[in-house]
Each structure stands twice: as C-alpha cells, then as structure tokens.
Amino acid sequence: MNFYFLILGMALVTYLPRVLPFLALDLEKIPPGIKIFLGYTPYAAMGALIFPGIWQSIPESLPAVIAGGIITTIISLGARNLVLSIIGGVLTATLILML
C-alpha cells in the first residue's frame, strides 16, 4: 500500500482530537466545574507525561536521569529560565553518562 495512506491516516487521527474541542465547545456554556478541571489539566498532563516515561528517557543510565532531574528542578526554581533549565539538565545527564 502507498506509504502516504499511512501518513494521511495518522495525520487525521492526530488532528481530530486536537481540533474537535475548539469546534464543538461553546466557551460561555462550559460549567465552572469543568473549567476548573480543565485548569488543572496542564499540571496533571505534565505529571502523567513525566512519570514513568522519564525513567526510560536515557535507557543506559538511571543515575543520569535522576541527576538531570534534580539539576533541572533546582535551576528552574532559582533562575526561572526555561532554556537554562533544559540546557543544565541535559548537560548534567550527559556528563553523568560520560563518567
């Protein structure tokens, strides 16, 4: 089968969940309870995206993951700069891998 069928099929099932809420929801009519649920959704999403996937992010070395996580947390709380936090975390993980 043509490979582009796969790409278009995947594009469609990726696009639909992303666009349906925009098309189907009416902002004025969303009950306050649902708004609070959706307000907490980003934090829940980040928790679910971090655990347990993070343990597999560097399959070669768990200590590299843990050290990277700690340094990223410290920099993000201190410097409040996303790029610095990411660079610091990745460099730390890479350094541990090199040991």
């Binding site: 560097i58 590299a64 947390t73 990411i86």
Partner: peptide
Amino acid sequence: ILRAGMGFALYALFIALLAPP
C-alpha cells in the same frame, strides 16, 4: 553520547515548567 543525553530534553522542559507552580 550527546544524543543519549538529549533524550532527556523533553523531560527537562516538563520539569522546568512544572517545578515553579
């Protein structure tokens, strides 16, 4: 070695966004 370390980048982004709040 750098590519392996970079597998961590997306998680670093999530951590850096989540930690302050």
